[in-house]
Each structure stands twice: as C-alpha cells, then as structure tokens.
C-alpha cells in the first residue's frame, strides 16, 4: 500500500513539470501563429519580364512574423518567373521539391538544376530526367497580373513528397 502510494504521489508530483514542459515544447504543432494563409506579394513590373520563356529570378518581399518579431517587408524567399511568347506568366518556387536546396537556372542548358543532389528540371519546371531525385516537378505559385504588375502568392511546400503540400 505504502509502495503504491509512494509511486503514485511521487509520479504525480513529477508529472506537473514534465507535462507543462511537454505542452510548451509541442506548441509549434499548433499550426499557424499568423502565418496560415499567405497573401499575394508584388514581385515586379511586366517590363522586366521579356516574353522569351527564359526564367528569371526575383526576390519575394513580404511581411514576416518570426515568432516574437514582426519583420515588415523582408526577403522571405525567391522565385523564378518566366513569360512565354504567348504572354503566359509562370512562377516557380526556387526551393527544390526534393530536399529544399536552392535550385539554379542554368542558361547554357536551359534547365533548372539543384546543386545539392543533382535534381534537374526543364525550363517549364517538369522533371527532365526520370532518374532525377526530385519526386515532383518544380512547385508553381499562383500568379495575378494587376495592371502592369506581377503579383505572386508565395508559399513554401513540404519537400520529399509526390504531392505539393503547403507547409504553413
């Protein structure tokens, strides 16, 4: 009886710090914290984007809540924009869908190439080589033309999956 009481009482006492610690440690699982829905960011003027189908890199400037710090108008990532001869604009996330490195555009071969594990993509973002480690094509982002400006909804996606799953 005493033994059981000792274990129960001691255990209950220990449970308080352990549980309260665990609760806070698990806080990041509560998704969001203001990040949730990402909104559109103004990227550039249409003039900077010749209709030649060549991807060009742009920095995305947006407000960012980083835990306790609100960072207004900071670079949150980079994208590639390309405009086809027909005038369609495509936006690609610059992060590799394989493991999250920064994908380069290599004009000499007119392809995207990830300098980490050698994933390669055609200029339209599709997988070029079936042996390429990336599980999916480059992630496209929603584009809106507002007047003379290109706006993009910047998002990050989980790496390593066949499906495109937003992280926030």
């Amino acid at each position: 009886m005493k033994e059981a009481a000792a274990v129960a009482i001691g255990g209950a006492a220990t449970l308080v710090p352990v549980a309260s610690g665990l609760l806070v440690w698990l806080d990041p699982l509560n998704s969001g914290g203001g990040e949730g829905q990402s909104s559109f960011s103004r990227i550039t003027g249409l003039e900077s984007l010749p209709a030649d189908g060549v991807p060009r890199k742009f920095t995305v400037i947006a407000d960012r809540q980083d835990a306790w710090t609100k960072n207004p108008k900071v670079p949150v990532g980079a994208i590639y924009l390309s405009r086809s001869a027909k005038g369609d604009i495509t936006a690609f996330q610059s992060i590799c869908p394989h493991a999250g490195c920064f994908v380069e555009y290599r004009p000499a071969k007119n392809e995207f190439f990830c300098p980490c594990h050698n994933s390669s993509f055609a200029a339209d973002g599709t997988i070029k080589d079936p042996k390429s480690p990336s599980p999916r094509p480059m992630d496209t982002l929603a584009v809106e033309i507002r007047g003379n400006e290109v706006w993009v909804r910047f998002q990050n996606f989980q790496a390593g999956h066949r499906e495109k799953i937003p992280t926030a």
Partner: peptide, 17 residues
C-alpha cells in the same frame, strides 16, 4: 514526418524558434 519537422524547426519556417 511533418509533425517531427515542425517540432524540430519550431514552426513551419526557419526563424527565431
């Protein structure tokens, strides 16, 4: 997987946490 990542990273993106 994604829960593990969130717990290591402290959220969905790299930052203070």
């Amino acid at each position: 997987g994604s829960q593990i990542e969130r717990l290591i990273v402290g959220g969905s993106d790299y930052g203070n946490l």
